[in-house]
């Protein structure tokens, strides 16, 4: 029987690689009976969804633009790079 500590470790590891059949069975059994570990799993999901949301919010925010001076600098850099080739 898994402790909550062991269960929480497996939940975290399941985000990085597939668990073995045995680990998965043990974890499922634990989760059937443990509200706290279910909430922990939910917390980690919310965490990852939230981080992704932060990224897409910035990606889709058309008010954020490559600053003009940076753009000019990049164009210059590209030009000088092409001349040197």
């Amino acid at each position: 029987m898994l402790t909550c500590q062991q269960a929480s470790q497996l939940i975290s590891q399941s985000l990085d690689h597939p668990l073995s059949w045995y680990e998965l069975m043990q974890l499922r059994l634990h989760l059937m009976m443990c509200g706290a570990c279910n909430r922990f799993r939910k917390q980690l999901n919310v965490l990852l969804v939230g981080l992704r949301k932060i990224r897409t919010n910035i990606e889709n925010d058309s008010a954020i633009q490559l600053p003009l001076d940076a753009k000019t600098r990049i164009v210059e850099k590209l030009k000088s790079n092409q001349h040197s080739q």
Partner: peptide, 8 residues
Amino acid sequence: YLYRFALA
């Protein structure tokens, strides 16, 4: 877009 992607 690339700038926002990197900034994110």
